[in-house]
């Protein structure tokens, strides 16, 4: 369970990015967080992966209160949350296999585990045949799938995708949505932070609307609501 309890984030001197957000997301849920640019969606993601600390309120993941998480505990938290950013953050000099393996390598995983897990994950996202190519040798949609694969290598309990369809056309967006559905069906909590109306409406899952830092709407099975 992800629990934001009256969370606010104020940047000095007085810029309110998130204001009194009260939000509960149950394990295994798939939730779209929508809102205009600057509404505070990405700040929520940053608070969840401890890149930012809340100014007020509490954040809890399961029984773990991460409001004042220690710096040494942040890596442990991030291994439990797979994050997918719009700008992919793929390393251009590494192959697809190496990019995915990198996430395991830097956490000290043995080579035998890396060789076993990475092909399995790449198979889930349909890239097992392109694992030796470099990022600039595959399409934008395929690059996004590599990022998804990378976020899954630690078998996270939560996957957060910040604008996952930002650089993709409609066909690729459909493919990505189906992958997220697949991930969610395996029991992983999925948070989609997006602008993409079609994507949200096609999912027919819970939609949380953020407006000027606050939750303005929370529908159990909703559509993208224009602000």
């Amino acid at each position: 369970m992800i629990y934001f309890k009256n969370v606010s984030k104020i940047y000095p001197p007085d810029v309110v990015a998130v204001k009194d957000v009260h939000l509960k997301i149950e394990p295994g849920e798939m939730v779209s967080i929508v809102g205009q640019s600057g509404a505070g969606k990405t700040t929520l993601v940053k608070l969840l992966i401890a890149e930012e600390r809340p100014s007020k309120g509490r954040i809890q993941i399961g029984d773990w209160d991460i409001t004042n998480i220690k710096v040494s505990e942040i890596p442990i938290l991030r291994r439990q949350i797979g994050v997918i950013f719009q700008d992919f953050k793929l390393l251009p000099k590494k192959t697809i296999f190496e990019n995915v393996a990198f996430a395991l390598e830097v956490c000290g995983a043995p080579d035998s585990r890396i060789k076993k897990i990475v092909p399995q994950i790449l198979e889930i996202v349909g890239l097992e045949k392109k694992m030796h190519r470099y990022p600039d040798e595959i399409s934008g949609g395929e690059q996004q799938r590599v990022v998804i694969a990378r976020s899954l290598v630690h078998a996270p309990k939560i996957v957060i995708a910040d604008e996952p369809s930002g650089n993709l056309d409609a066909i690729n967006t459909d493919e990505i949505v189906s992958i997220f559905k697949k991930i969610n069906e395996l029991g992983t909590t999925v948070l989609l932070v997006t602008h993409n109306r079609e994507m949200v409406n096609a999912l027919r899952r819970r939609v949380v609307t953020i407006d000027r830092g606050s939750v303005s709407n929370d529908q159990a099975e909703g559509n993208f609501i224009r602000q």
Partner: peptide, 17 residues
């Protein structure tokens, strides 16, 4: 810087970075 940013994202420990 790109690698470090990915390392932080995927949960590499400070010591490892």
């Amino acid at each position: 810087r790109e690698e470090i940013s990915v390392m932080r994202l995927v949960g590499a420990s400070n010591w490892f970075i």
